[in-house]
Design a protein around this nucleic acid. Structure first.
Lengths: 243, 243
DNA sequence: TTCTATCATCGAACGGCGTTCGTTGAAAAC
DNA sequence: GTTTTCAACGAACGCCGTTCGATGATAGAA
């Protein structure tokens, strides 16, 4: 006679009915769910509770696989580099190679909402990411750049890319709550705002306002990239003396 | 000199009515207290409750003077530019002028903990800050740079500065909880970490690791600055065609 | 002086957050 | 068949930003 045959007392009826997860929880599945939440709610809406509910699981279940939220963000950051192949260094076309690296980085970050903000809080020096850094360094050192320049150039580029995409994000999300406005409508508002400035006090703003508003983000990104690469190129084969 | 004749930015909601002078609590005092909290607890510890307690006041009292936490951060950002004078443009020394602008920006952000992280979430296009942007644009347009380059150069520089200081902050705070370690101790640990990499797979990392670890932040900042300015200079008086 | 209207501040509450911890029950190991 | 293990649970803790009705001091009117 086991307790199995006994009836269940009514006060216990609401007891747990633990439908064991058909698919076991893993770090990978948690990161997958985190990206779903990130894309839907943005970084500010990315909470452990929300990720858990996405998986049909309790919050605390996550903590068996992930130390804390920071580690989850770290894992998401690592995803950025999954299958991110850098080419063999080709001293003839190093500038274009670096530009392609930057473009690919930007594209990957744009693929998930607020990804740039996550990226800015991380460094690529974990063991999993060091191979990527090594490949980038190989590209940089094959250019003829002095090592001390090559050593910081990767960091500079990443800072530029992160900052640029983060800024894109800010503008996109600034207009989020409001009615669906087209980008051209937003541009017109900005033009009107800048155009209404007193001309005697803001001659330079007025002179470039349309340029600032009209140029696409793609154009701005490429131009900034070109500025950095021209600056780098100026160090090739030259005994450098910064400042 | 008033802000009254300035247009309202389109993204801005209706601002609060100005507070009466007779009450002891003011926006200024709230911002002062917020900086005290920021320096003591960092951005993550900067809560409305903590600011209120710093003033010996209830949380909700703050909301009579400040719409929300975001507005408080905005006001703190504005403080960055208080008394930030840019020189008259001098076409002979524009590179040094821009470098001094960058150095001053970095120094101001370093003056308050996590200030760079606050700065990264803001734009300087509010009416109060536009005069500063105008002065910077004046510097940039006096260089002989094409307008389309001048229009994005200020943004680029600010992105670089914000990103650089934010990264400095990350490293500083990464070692915060631990026992007081000297920077040289931290450097040694990093050198040991990089030095233990397998030489066949990480030849480039090993070649520049010491450079990456040993150079001071000041040196790195100056070098990055110089790279950007050389890139900008390459556009002077040249019909530009970005990539 | 007394009354009244204003308004800065209070105190409690709401819903949400990251994280911890003792409990539980199904599967794995024996 | 028994024991062990351990992933998931659920409740709780102490935070957070923000809201709202109550309170009480004060300035101006009578």
């Amino acid at each position: 006679m086991t307790e199995r045959d006994m009836p269940t007392p009514p006060w216990e009826r609401a007891r747990r009915r633990p439908t064991r997860a058909r698919v076991p929880l893993t770090r990978e599945r948690i990161v997958d769910a985190a990206f779903v939440v990130l894309d839907q709610e943005g970084l500010d809406g990315l909470s452990m509770r929300r990720v858990a509910s996405e998986l049909g699981v309790t919050v605390s279940a996550l903590y068996a696989h992930v130390d804390n939220k920071n580690e989850l963000l770290e894992l998401m950051y690592h995803r950025l580099f999954d299958g991110f192949e850098l080419p063999e260094h080709d001293p003839e076309h190093w500038q274009e190679q670096l530009k392609n690296f930057a473009r690919e980085s930007r594209a990957r970050m744009q693929h998930h909402r607020d990804m740039a903000r996550i990226s800015m809080g991380q460094t690529p020096f974990s063991p999993e990411l060091l191979p990527h850094v090594e490949r980038l360094l190989a590209l940089l050192r094959a250019t003829g750049l002095p090592d001390r320049v090559a050593a910081i150039a990767g960091d500079m580029l990443s800072t530029y890319i992160d900052g640029f995409v983060a800024e894109e994000t800010i503008w996109r999300e600034r207009y989020e709550g409001e009615d669906v406005k087209s980008w051209s409508e937003i541009r017109d508002e900005m033009k009107a705002y800048f155009g209404a400035l007193p001309p005697d006090r803001f001659p330079n703003m007025l002179a470039v306002a349309n340029l600032m508003v009209d140029e696409t983000n793609d154009y701005r990104f490429e131009l900034g990239l070109d500025i950095i690469l021209r600056g780098l190129a100026s160090y090739v084969e030259e005994p450098p003396d910064a400042s």
